[in-house]
């Protein structure tokens, strides 16, 4: 449904995208996972025909994003990272406007947006600029869907959104997927990666890896341990001082450490013993499977 080949884009001398190639299948939720400045927005803007790549080519729904840009625009829905609806129009007027621009009506495609739009319909006469963040997000999604696009581009729809609302938003995306819509979504939240069918980890304009979330996790080759003790900030320093530890980072209520390659005789028990000898109390050490965030950190260090 989306296909890219060797896309490159520079802003002046600064490379924003570096040789990006990938494909998204029909009906997939594909996640672009990476921090601010990684190139996610630039990539979205190229695929939605808003800017031109310096090199490479891309098609969306079979249409070339340069030669057939008009056809692309008709079949994609785009929700930019920054709220870009008309602040002085009401909720209903914004939706009406987008329906009309795409030569359709709210009634015609109401089924598609019902779930989402019903939540803001009680406020339909309120100006968009006066809506709360969560309501703006729902209106923006409704407007991006009103012409029944085949591909939906969502640029950081959940940034700055609390965990409960984020979960609800992903519930909406799953329901759209069941209606056959292909979704390319970007996020800086690593915990959302697991909700995608496939993901690309992106940093500094390059894809670090493309795979299913499970595939990315399976690709983590190092041994990983989670370590907890009574004094977490001292533990961080002490773990980094150990000769066999390669990296050590805080992960919520524990620290995650990776071991150097030659340290294959180390076990949870031996780490525990060593930390006890250094004066740590209530030490818990477990060998664990990596998560997406561990993988991202490991790949971005290479």
């Amino acid at each position: 449904m989306i296909s890219c080949s060797a896309i490159r884009k520079n802003y002046g001398k600064i490379p924003a995208l570096n040789n990006i190639s990938f494909e998204v299948q029909k009906g997939e939720i594909f996640g672009l996972i990476g921090p601010d400045g990684a190139g996610k927005t630039t990539f979205f803007r190229i695929l939605t025909t808003l800017i031109l790549a310096d090199e490479g080519s891309a098609t969306v729904n079979g249409y070339d994003v340069v030669r057939s840009y008009e056809s692309v625009r008709k079949c994609v829905g785009y929700m930019p990272g920054r709220f870009s609806l008309y602040q002085d129009l009401t909720v209903a007027e914004n939706l009406e406007f987008f329906a009309t621009v795409f030569n359709t009506s709210i009634q015609e495609n109401y089924d598609l947006i019902r779930d989402i739009y019903q939540q803001i319909e009680p406020f339909k006469h309120r100006r968009a600029g006066k809506l709360s963040g969560g309501m703006k997000q729902k209106l923006a999604l409704s407007c991006a869907l009103i012409h029944k696009p085949t591909v939906l581009f969502l640029d950081e729809p959940t940034t700055g959104v609390d965990p409960v609302s984020r979960k609800e938003f992903w519930g909406m995306l799953k329901r759209l997927q069941h209606q056959g819509i292909t979704i390319l979504v970007s996020t800086p939240y690593m915990d959302e990666a697991g909700l995608c069918d496939r993901i690309a980890l992106i940093q500094r304009g390059s894809f670090l890896s493309i795979d299913t979330p499970a595939g990315i996790v399976a690709g983590f080759r190092k041994r990983l341990f989670s370590v907890h003790s009574q004094s977490m900030s001292q533990l961080l320093k002490d773990l980094r001082g150990l000769a066999f530890v390669e990296s050590c980072y805080a992960f919520g209520d524990s620290h995650h450490i990776t071991l150097k390659e030659q340290a294959n005789t180390i076990t949870s028990e031996s780490i525990q013993l060593q930390l006890h000898q250094m004066g740590h109390q209530h030490v818990v050490v477990r060998e664990i499977q990596a998560g997406i965030e561990d993988c991202f950190m490991e790949l971005s260090n290479q």
């Binding site: 921090p35 601010d36 990684a38 940034t159 800086p188 690593m190 980072y249 805080a250 950190m297 971005s300």
Partner: peptide, 20 residues
């Protein structure tokens, strides 16, 4: 106020070490 929104995982952790 949300000092680490959108920041990559390594930088986010380095930032917390500065808070410490």
């Amino acid at each position: 106020d949300e000092p680490t929104g959108g920041v990559d995982p390594v930088t986010r952790r380095q930032f917390w070490e500065m808070i410490y």
